[in-house]
Simulated scan of single mutants.
Amino acid sequence: MQPRIKYLLGAATALLLLWFVFDALTQPGPQDLDGDFTEVALYRNENNTGPVQRIYAVTVADTVRWAEMQQYGEYMPHTKYGNTRVYFFSAAGPAPRALQPGPVPFAPELQAKCLAVYEKDLQSNVSFKRRPFGQP
C-alpha cells in the first residue's frame, strides 16, 4: 500500500474510535433527568442461578414528575428473565433505607408514602403505577 493510503486509513480509524468513545460517554442516563432523583436503598438477590431480582427505593424532589419517574425506571439495569422494580418516594418525607424480597419490600407504614412503582418483569413487560397502594 502507498504511504498516503495508510495515512488516510489510520486517520479515519482514529476519528472513528474518537467518535465511538465520545458517543459512549455522552449517553443519557438518570442523572440527566429533572427532579433530583436519589437512590436511597437497593436490594439484589444473591441467587445467580435463577432470575435476578433488583429492587430500588428512590426519592424525588417533585412528586408529580410521572414521566420522569417512568424514564428513570427505564434507565435502571434489567436482566433478561429478571425483574426490576423501582419505588418512588417524596424527598420531603420518609423513605425506606433497606429493602427485602417480597411483594412489598419495605415496612407497611411506608406504603402510604409511596408515590409510584415502575416494574419490568421476567418477560420485559413494563408497568408504571401511580399510588400503587391505593392512597389518594
Score class of each variant (00 low, 15 high):
111 Q>S: 04
25 L>C: 06
89 F>G: 00
131 R>I: 01
110 L>G: 04
125 N>W: 05
105 P>V: 11
97 R>D: 07
19 W>H: 08
117 V>E: 06
14 A>G: 10
70 Q>E: 14
67 A>T: 12
7 Y>L: 02
90 S>C: 02
122 L>F: 13
63 T>G: 03
85 R>N: 06
35 G>K: 01
69 M>D: 02
97 R>W: 03
118 Y>C: 03
119 E>L: 04
117 V>F: 07
18 L>V: 13
81 Y>W: 14
5 I>C: 05
71 Q>T: 14
107 A>L: 12
66 W>G: 09
20 F>M: 14
122 L>H: 10
88 F>E: 05
31 Q>G: 13
25 L>K: 13
42 L>K: 09
31 Q>C: 03
59 T>Q: 05
135 Q>D: 11
107 A>V: 05
95 A>Y: 03
13 T>M: 09
79 T>A: 13
111 Q>A: 12
126 V>Y: 06
64 V>M: 09
79 T>L: 07
115 L>E: 07
106 F>P: 00
103 P>H: 13
59 T>G: 03
70 Q>Y: 04
97 R>F: 04
23 D>Y: 10
79 T>R: 13
54 R>Q: 05
102 G>F: 05
9 L>D: 01
119 E>I: 04
111 Q>P: 01
45 N>W: 13
125 N>Q: 14
101 P>K: 12
99 L>W: 09
119 E>F: 04
47 N>G: 06
134 G>A: 13
15 L>D: 03
101 P>S: 09
120 K>G: 00
128 F>C: 01
113 K>V: 01
5 I>G: 00
57 A>G: 02
23 D>W: 15
66 W>I: 06
64 V>F: 12
52 V>F: 04
102 G>E: 10
57 A>S: 03
91 A>F: 05
80 K>M: 09
51 P>V: 00
56 Y>M: 00
27 Q>V: 09
117 V>Q: 08
58 V>C: 02
94 P>V: 02
106 F>A: 02
135 Q>K: 10
27 Q>F: 07
60 V>S: 01
76 M>H: 08
13 T>V: 12
80 K>S: 10
102 G>D: 10
10 G>E: 06
18 L>A: 15
80 K>F: 07
128 F>D: 04
109 E>P: 00
56 Y>K: 05
78 H>P: 01
16 L>H: 07
62 D>G: 04
48 N>W: 15
81 Y>P: 00
6 K>I: 00
131 R>N: 11
115 L>W: 07
52 V>S: 08
97 R>V: 07
92 A>E: 14
126 V>L: 06
87 Y>N: 00
97 R>N: 10
27 Q>L: 14
1 M>C: 11
32 D>T: 06
34 D>M: 08
99 L>H: 11
75 Y>G: 01
66 W>L: 10
14 A>I: 12
47 N>S: 15
101 P>N: 12
120 K>H: 03
83 N>M: 09
88 F>R: 03
82 G>H: 11
108 P>R: 14
96 P>K: 12
121 D>A: 05
104 V>E: 10
49 T>A: 11
14 A>F: 11
47 N>E: 13
55 I>M: 07
114 C>N: 15
44 R>W: 03
17 L>V: 15
77 P>E: 15
58 V>A: 02
62 D>P: 03
102 G>Y: 08
18 L>Y: 12
14 A>R: 04
128 F>W: 12
114 C>Y: 07
56 Y>A: 00
28 P>S: 14
34 D>N: 08
68 E>H: 02
95 A>T: 03
107 A>K: 14
72 Y>M: 01
